[in-house]
Write a protein that binds this DNA or RNA. Structure first.
Length: 677
RNA sequence: GGCAAGGUAGCUCAGUUGGUUAGAGCACCGCACUCAUAAUGCGGGGGUCGGCGGUUCAAAUCCGCCCCUUGCUACCA
């Protein structure tokens, strides 16, 4: 048995602005299994998390609802903790980043980094909303990502491509407050000098604290150079004021990871645990962060650098996982596969999902797919058909013939030992986060147990007189094998394991509590431990997720043509409209550009003048089908230099993209050059 | 187009440093059994291991080119 380790584990903090969905749960289930496993192994292990409660979206939403941000985050906290609890996510503590502990730690970490010279001040040009009379923090500005061009992105990092940048780099910025175009105005900001830590970070990565795929990706960041990180925001902002400033607040991503510490700090204070043992620079305890692959930058660069700069220890490991797809595709609200935790719970047993995820999880960053058909079959076959069935087929005999009493000897010590020994490999797989392999091994044992029972055919022996002992021995053996299996599955299926413990009439199992079989032991009456999954329930859940959509307005997941998904823009006056010169044009030529994936080069007859316009419609139209037809263009749009030449206008089309793009057409009779008004 | 990760039975996935007829589970077919939540056991059908070429006595496994999927990145004004 290994020495007792001291381990602190975290999952990424969910944002206190929306509901938990199945995508989130990949991470919490993955982490929870690991945490439960470590605890079963007898280690001193703590699993903490918190709501990420700061930032502009929360401020905006609170405003929208006409409540204080504190009221909003308290409500979301209740919702999140209820969802987690019902999925058996067993946090030792679940905190909030809007807490005194977090404020104190954030200030301390900032001050230490500042005093060590890692913070600089720069006056930057920042977007300012003259109408609202305020600076616009990142998330008050929306526009197109400067890197990938994705529309409707916030000013700090792109949710589409993951790039980080400053708000002033956004293309076509619009204030979310007034809807007007922001102007630039000077403002003094504080920056964390990430480059100071380049060597430390490189060493830390090389020391194997991140997965190899992640290390490769980080190499790209290093090559691009580590830029200073803007950690301050102007008021108004929902967050913590920065010490020694008047109106500056910590950027939400500064205090979010510190929330890990704050949550643990709170827990330590309540349970008399020494916080510093876990966080001091030379700590010998272990610290692991489970995160999604989208926030690697923050956790593998900013976070260890901040910790180091403030004199704290760095993480022992940052474990990134992939995203969840459903039936091979991105979660989609319109298909009903964007499933909220609560919606799932209304239809299905959380342990089905825990098991299914576990069966597919590995230590790698790969995305995992929830195949609903496979989900039903796998859960039913493995858990009900194999594992629970072992107990189910033995329990009846033990109850009816032996008053729930197990044999006084173990008749197959070798087989039992085989099951116990298999635990070493299974434990190793858990430790390596190779849950899929662990599950495979466990199921192999379940098959073995069923084979044993078949081989011994207790139902035959039951009919023979004078064979009572043999019958009791065989069934006791089956029950004991079942017990070992439940022990191995307990990190994944804690609730089922608890029921099994009641049936087996044993203390809560640990990893090593099954090394000896139960002898002359009395069981409690057997009750079905798990019901089969019904495909109807799965379908109902999908349907319910579809109807959720109609009742909701938030979300940017899938392009959708409904107004709730894409609300009508702010009112403009006629003047503004009249500024747009729309004209009928004839497409005289449409050419495919072989180096371009999305663009077609159009030559447009404007009734006496030809224009070259690039249009991103290659995915939906063949060049030859366009030549000759009439359509509508914006004729007075400023020309734009593109990779393949100058684009002198824009043709109008609707649709989400891909094959679904639809050019406008005028009724017959319209002529090139006619103005649209 | 560039970078990265993938493409193995209907489905979900294993295949370690190249080595006997390519594996598992589920699904399907047959048989057995009837203790068990239409559960279990035995047996079977089913794959040109994305494609083409190369290295090798030997390649799913190494190399090259190509195709496809996903993510990021570069032109969707």
């Amino acid at each position: 048995m290994p020495d007792k380790r001291k381990i602190l584990i975290t999952s990424a903090l969910p944002y206190a602005n929306g509901s938990i969905h199945l995508g989130h749960l990949v991470e919490y289930i993955q982490t929870d299994i690991w945490s439960r496993f470590q605890k079963m192994r007898g280690h001193e292990c703590y699993y903490v998390c918190a709501d990420d409660a700061h930032g502009t979206p929360i401020m905006l939403r609170a405003r929208l609802e006409g409540i204080e941000p504190e009221t909003l985050i308290a409500r979301i906290w209740q919702e999140h903790t209820a969802d987690f609890a019902d999925f058996h996510i067993d946090f030792d503590h679940y905190h909030s980043t809007h807490s005194p502990e977090n404020e104190q730690l954030a200030r301390a970490i900032y001050v230490k980094n500042r005093d060590a010279g890692h913070i600089t001040q720069k006056t930057i040009l920042q977007a300012y909303d003259p109408e609202a009379g305020m600076f616009l923090p990142d998330r008050f500005i929306k526009g197109a990502c400067p890197k990938c061009g994705a529309e409707d992105q916030y000013g700090d990092n792109c949710e589409v491509c993951g790039a980080t940048y400053s708000p002033t780099e956004l293309k076509h910025p619009v204030s979310a407050v007034s809807g007007t175009k922001p102007v630039e105005k000077a403002s003094e900001h504080l920056f964390f000098q990430l480059a100071d830590f380049e060597q430390i970070l490189k060493d830390w990565h090389l020391a194997g604290h991140v997965q190899t795929e992640v290390a490769n990706k980080l190499g790209e960041w290093f090559e691009a150079g580590l830029a200073d990180w803007d950690i301050s925001r102007d008021a108004p902002y929902f967050g913590f004021p920065i010490p020694d400033t008047e109106d500056k607040y910590f950027y939400v991503w500064l205090d979010a990871p510190i929330g890990y510490m704050a949550s643990f700090r709170h827990f330590c204070d309540q349970h008399s645990i020494d916080f510093d043992t876990f966080w001091q620079a030379d700590s010998e305890t272990e610290l692991y962060h489970f995160i999604g692959k989208d926030i690697i930058y923050f956790h593998a660069l900013f976070w260890p650098a901040m910790l180091h700069g403030a004199g704290y220890r760095k993480p022992s490991g940052v474990f990134a996982h992939g995203f969840l797809t459903v039936d091979g595709a991105k979660m989609s609200k319109s298909r009903g596969t964007f499933i909220k935790a609560r919606t799932y719970l209304e239809h299905l047993n959380p342990e089905y999902l825990r098991y299914y995820f576990a069966a597919k999880l590995s230590r790698r960053v790969d995305d995992i797919d929830l195949n609903l058909e496979d989900f039903v079959q796998r859960v039913n076959a493995d858990l009900v058909g194999k594992v629970v069935n072992i107990a189910s087929r033995c329990a009846g005999f033990i109850k009816k013939r032996f008053a729930n009493q197990l044999s006084e000897t173990c008749v197959e010590p070798a087989l039992y030992a085989e099951f116990v020994q298999a635990g070493e490999q299974i434990a190793d797989y858990y430790e390596q986060r190779e849950y899929g392999r662990a599950v495979r091994d466990i199921m192999k044992l379940a098959d073995r147990a069923n084979q044993y029972i078949d081989e011994k055919a207790p139902w035959v022996i039951a009919k023979q007189t004078g064979e009572e002992q043999a019958l009791q021995d065989i069934c006791s053996m089956g029950i004991n094998l079942f017990r070992v299996l439940i022990g191995y599955l307990k990190p994944i299926l804690p609730s089922m394991a608890n029921q099994a413990e009641i049936f087996l009439n044993v203390e809560p199992m640990t990893w090593h509590s099954q090394t000896e079989p139960l002898i002359a032991h009395r069981l409690n009456p057997f009750k079905p431990l798990m019901k089969r999954v019904d495909m109807d329930n799965v379908q109902n859940m999908v349907e319910a997720s579809k109807t959720d959509l109609a009742a909701q307005t938030q979300g940017t997941e899938m392009a959708d043509t409904t107004l709730s998904q894409d609300p009508i823009a702010d009112v403009i006056d006629y003047e503004a409209f009249a500024q747009i010169d729309l004209r009928i044009v004839r497409i005289v030529k449409a050419e495919s550009i072989k180096e371009a994936d999305k663009l077609l080069r159009l030559t447009l007859d404007l009734g006496g003048e030809n224009r070259q316009v690039f249009a991103g419609i290659k995915s939906a139209y063949q060049p030859q089908e366009l030549a000759g037809r009439l359509t509508v263009m914006v004729a007075n749009l400023a020309p734009r230099k593109m990779r393949f030449g100058l684009s002198e206008g824009m043709v109008l089309a609707a649709g989400p993209g891909g094959k679904d793009l639809f050019l406008l057409s005028p009724d017959s009779g319209a002529q090139p050059g006619m103005r649209i008004k």
